[in-house]
Amino acid sequence: MKTWIKTLVILAAIGMVTATMLFVFVINKSHPDYETKKADYSLSAIDIFNDYSEDIQNASKKYNGKIIEIESTLTEIESSDGQIIACFVLKEGVFGPEGVRIRMLENQKNILKDIAIGEKVTLKGYVTGYNETDVILEHGSIVVQ
């Protein structure tokens, strides 16, 4: 076989393998590491709650899909179906307490149990939005100061 044909076949093979690896890598790329990801904003629970309550459209544009660090007084820890939710209750609404709710990451559940209700804490999470009663965050973790 001529040298240039050999080279072409090798290059094509390398190209195909690279493309396949890239495709597999993109398809199977992992979720972000929410615990180590840098926060886009850092604010108090009342500030983010007020931002959504006063102008949901602007607040959604600003915070939805972002990582937010919240420093406030922990008012409640809810447990449901193996999920742990840290709550910053800010007001009593028509349907009970309203505020900021953060569903904690699996590895954070035990750490959160060591924090007392009424203690000031900084939590970080991914904002999914405001549902007319609460600001909702997922993938929550504790920020060690």
Binding site: I27, K29, R103, G129, N131, I136
Partner: peptide, 30 residues
């Protein structure tokens, strides 16, 4: 999605739920 808001009125039968779309968790990030 594990943070679904829902309410029911057991007298009138009114039933509502609301879910935030960004709260859905998939196996694959893509």
């Amino acid at each position: 999605n594990h943070q679904v808001n829902s309410a029911i009125d057991i007298v009138t039968g009114d039933f509502v739920f609301r879910v935030l779309m960004k709260g859905f968790r998939f196996e694959k990030a893509l």
